[in-house]
Amino acid sequence: MRADDLFKAMNGIDEKFLEESENTENGRNKILKIRRYVVVAACACFAIAIGLYVPNAFRMGRSDLAYEESFETAEESNDAIYDEKSEGAALEVEGEAASDSIYAYNISLYINDEYVDVSWEDNEAVNAIKEVLVDGDITLEMSPYGGFEVYSKIDLSIPAQDEQLTAESGDIVLYNGDTFAVLYDSNTADYTKLGKIYNLSNEELKELLENESVTIALRLE
């Protein structure tokens, strides 16, 4: 008997074992996911608490001063209150504009320095990538996998919302919460969808991605 015979004998492996192997979730992954969600939720609560407390404390401090000044003429005290309110309102508007501004920007994607049009999803994962891009571009060296995608691990905390998807050519996905992939043929797996490349035919996309060396750059523009 040769290795080829042993290899071919595996054609009869029980279907339930083969299906089981296609499930990427394992106990450790589940625990890491739960831990990640707990940390993200805790940070979100903390950020909301800070967001509510600081402006309130600021306004309370200024209104104490306004109260002390109320012994002056009524006109002067009214002016002081008016100034404080309009300044507080201006600070609020500035704060809102600052927090909204990065989400108004778009992520530009370049494959081997060639810009490609992408329609990005409006979800937490894409917003998290935008927040990271504020500090600088992300450059990924991609590796081929399975004859249908190029992928790269990303060392970032991106909130994943995986669901079983049949991803098509041009889809940009997050996989296992830490792997960025671009598909040039279809595949079904647990993915978080990030976006879709358009204005490129399947052949053009395959030509770009079926190269020995593929670099993908993400920029906020």
């Binding site: 004998a9 009869g12 492996i13 089981e20 192997s21 394992n26």
Partner: peptide, 28 residues
Amino acid sequence: AKELTKIINGFLGDLSVRERKVFIRRYY
């Protein structure tokens, strides 16, 4: 060959889930 397949399935059934998955991804 059929006997061998039966033996392989028995062998896989005795492995832990992780060992079985890794073995199958590699050799199937």
